[in-house]
Structure formats: C-alpha cells, structure tokens
Amino acid sequence: MRIIVVKGDITDQRADAIVNAANSSLLGGGGVDGAIHRKGGSEILEACRRLRASAYGRGLDAGQAVATTAGRLPAKWVIHTVGPVHSRSEDRSKTLASCYRESLRVADELGASTVAFPAVSAGIYGWPMDDAARIAVETVRATPTKVEEVRFVLFTDEAYEHFQAQM
C-alpha cells in the first residue's frame, strides 16, 4: 500500500472513498463533516438519514465506520467515522486507531482502491496534532487491507507538517 500526505481540501479529492470525521448523529456538523455535507449535497444527508432510520437509530459509536454515497463530490463514497474527543484523564487512542482500521475495513467491503483521510479527532475534538498523526500513520501501516493508496489530506500547514514527519 502506498501512503502519501497532501495539503488540500478533502472535498476536492478524486478517490474511490473519502473519510468523513463525522459526529455521532451522522447528520452533519462543523469542520470536515460540515464541508463534506455542504459540498456533497443533500444526497449524503438523505443517505445518513436512511442509516439513522435503520441500523443506526442512536447514531454511530466512536471508532466505528459506515459508508454512504458521495453525492456531488468527486469521490464514489464517503466513509463516515466518529473519532473520540481527546481526554487528558482517559486514554482513548485505541478508539482513534479503530477509526482508521474500521474505515479501511469498510473501504475493502466497497472495493475501494484509493482512500483519502482527514486528521480524525484533531479538529474540534481537540486531539493534539502530533499524536493524531502518529496514531493515524501507524494504524494505517499496520492494518491489512486491499486499498492500494491511502492519502492523508490535511487542510493546514501544521497538520501537513505533523503527518509528513510520520512518513
């Protein structure tokens, strides 16, 4: 598997799947989640509402992943994963790692060969960027998958630098 780091907007990525750092409601929010829902259009929200009406009535648990259409995005699918909120008193790193493993598992089920990830939990969920980058890269490297290319797409210079330092 090829792993690359790029600076840019995940909503512009031409990939089989992009990963959404979603909130547990699956109904949109701020940051990456809001950007994906806005640019992808109502098709993504409608697909998320169908998920909530069926298997995910209470939402998606942290560390889990599920896929929907990508709507008007240049990707085929959006894989929604809910990262943990960072805590100084509780180690939630296994849950963060699970976001990457579960997203790759869903990508394999979809037959995706290219997947673009944001820095899950490193925005409003407060995960320190250096640790978020370490967990992301180590987990992706260690996860068996049929995905041929994983692209970490980082919006800020700081995020890009921390992820690049892990390569």
Score class of each variant (00 low, 15 high):
117 F>R: 04
73 L>I: 03
65 A>M: 02
167 M>D: 09
97 A>S: 14
130 D>R: 14
166 Q>N: 09
121 S>A: 15
139 T>V: 10
158 E>Q: 15
96 L>M: 13
129 M>D: 12
116 A>H: 03
79 I>E: 05
65 A>L: 00
6 V>E: 15
59 G>Y: 00
167 M>Y: 07
85 V>T: 13
152 F>V: 10
158 E>K: 14
56 Y>F: 15
106 V>F: 06
147 V>G: 00
138 E>Y: 07
143 T>P: 09
106 V>Q: 04
137 V>D: 05
147 V>D: 00
44 I>L: 03
122 A>E: 02
150 V>S: 03
69 T>E: 04
30 G>W: 03
78 V>A: 00
84 P>L: 10
31 G>S: 13
81 T>M: 09
50 R>M: 13
89 S>E: 15
158 E>L: 15
20 N>L: 08
140 V>R: 01
149 E>A: 06
162 H>I: 01
114 T>A: 04
84 P>R: 09
136 A>K: 07
61 D>Y: 10
34 G>Q: 08
66 V>W: 00
14 R>Q: 15
123 G>E: 07
149 E>I: 03
60 L>E: 00
53 A>F: 06
124 I>H: 12
60 L>N: 01
6 V>P: 07
138 E>V: 06
115 V>M: 08
102 E>Y: 04
21 A>K: 00
87 S>G: 09
162 H>V: 05
49 R>N: 14
115 V>C: 10
18 I>N: 04
122 A>M: 07
114 T>M: 05
123 G>A: 11
65 A>H: 00
116 A>L: 10
107 A>T: 05
7 K>Y: 03
155 F>A: 09
63 G>Q: 07
153 V>K: 01
133 A>C: 12
126 G>Y: 07
145 T>C: 12
68 T>V: 10
14 R>I: 14
82 V>Y: 00
133 A>V: 11
31 G>E: 14
41 G>V: 02
50 R>H: 11
138 E>S: 15
106 V>S: 02
23 N>P: 09
20 N>I: 05
43 E>H: 12
116 A>Y: 01
